[in-house]
Design a protein around this nucleic acid. Structure first.
Lengths: 143, 143
DNA sequence: GCCTAATCATTAGCCGTCAATCGATTCCGG
DNA sequence: CCGGAATCGATTGACGGCTAATGATTAGGC
């Protein structure tokens, strides 16, 4: 019955699969792009800062950073002034991915929206933004 | 840069969180509703059939069925005629959830789309369906 | 100046998802 | 009737996400 929810989750699945495919071509996993993007914009952030930026929880970022440290995309270093803080720094390998990955992501965006007219796309973005805002307002109020 | 993809994934996160919250109120986890829905429509399906219906892979259904068997929502039974097949059957507990869960789901749908006009919702559904179709066509062709 | 409270990362454990592999069973060609 | 091929469920291991608990360190109140 819930048409919108079902359609949205179906879209989510296929978009995720496509993004996964595109990122894998660059040696990345699905979610790692987002973490990298946060560091491309500003290097040396803490896990907590990144998590807030990505709208995910801190443990998610910590685990992702673990794997990406292992695979050599970034390094951990504790803050000099506040020893509780850990700062994530890009390696050259991590920085080198920015251009190809952003290109791939723009290509994907363009491909999946290719069948929409300007007006349709504008309406889609607008409506989706409204839904997101509404849902964010609802979250937590129901408990 | 990819506005639509970012907006869509943001919507996904918050919708998922809301759905999770709503299902937890019925003692379910996020994905279990979909499996139950498939069985409400037709009981006694095999894991592979359910997986196809939900557009997920077989291991996903098998693992989910494991947990739901443990929690008493359904039972496994091998097919009489083809001993390779396993069929999933609802228990009374599983059947009893249909009405409250479907109501909760309809409520959620209504709530998140409450701020949209009829026209906006129609446009959203239409555009999203187009994107889904386009993306499904793209999937696999890029490998 | 010390002790408590707040802050931050990490760990542990769960769920949902996938790809890849294994094992068992049925089906079909000869 | 028999053996290989196809089919299908189960298993394994990985990733992304969450909540809750743990541990270390800084900051603040008295």
């Amino acid at each position: 019955m819930p048409e919108f929810l079902d359609l949205h989750s179906r879209t989510t699945k296929v978009l995720r699969a496509l993004a996964d495919e595109a990122m894998r071509a660059n040696g990345l996993h699905y979610g790692q792009h987002h973490l990298l993007a946060a560091l491309w914009r500003q290097d040396g952030r803490t896990p907590g800062e990144v998590a807030a930026k990505l709208h995910v929880t801190t443990p998610t970022v910590v685990k992702m950073a673990d794997r990406m440290t292992t695979s050599g995309l970034l390094v951990r270093r504790r803050d000099d002034r506040d020893n509780r803080l850990v700062r994530l720094w890009l390696t050259d390998a991590g920085r080198a991915l920015q251009e190809p990955v952003e290109t791939a992501r723009r290509d994907l965006e363009q491909q999946v929206t290719a069948d929409l007219t300007e007006a349709e796309l504008a309406c889609l973005m607008d409506a989706l933004a409204k839904v997101a805002r509404t849902a964010e307002g609802l979250l937590g109020s129901g408990s």
